[in-house]
């Protein structure tokens, strides 16, 4: 299965950068699922969660003040805060 790179970046650092298969989140106009080779897209993220499928397993990320930028082989999420599963910083 083809993959794309997902970067999650906060003002403090790059939190996450991995090859993933699918990203699901709630964009400005509703829930979207992004697969590799998606059309370029920019949207604010509504809600607080981003679900990511990597190696067939879903993980949930918490972000706030987020933004998603999609390119065919690369997805970037810009967030003021981001929390990875199993990591509870703030």
């Amino acid at each position: 299965m083809s993959t794309m790179v997902l970067d999650i970046v906060t003002p403090e650092k790059k939190v996450y950068s991995e090859e993933v298969e699918m990203v699901i989140t709630k964009a400005a106009e509703g829930e979207i699922g992004i697969l590799p080779r998606h059309i370029p897209l920019v949207s604010p993220i509504k809600g607080k969660t981003v679900r990511v499928k990597k190696d067939g397993v879903f993980e949930t990320f918490h972000v706030s003040g987020g933004f998603i930028e999609v390119r065919s082989d690369r997805v970037t999420i810009l967030a003021e805060k981001a929390e990875l599963p199993g990591q509870n910083e703030e």
């Binding site: 003002p11 106009e29 949207s43 604010p44 933004f67 810009l78 003021e80």
Partner: peptide
């Protein structure tokens, strides 16, 4: 790249610009 914007380019800009200014202050 030619992006699609949700909901619209203007709305995206509205949200993005203040964030950018904040990021500049932080850096």
């Amino acid at each position: 790249a030619v992006y699609e914007y949700e909901p619209s380019p203007e709305a995206v800009l509205d949200v993005l610009l203040p964030r950018y200014a904040e990021a500049l202050i932080y850096s």
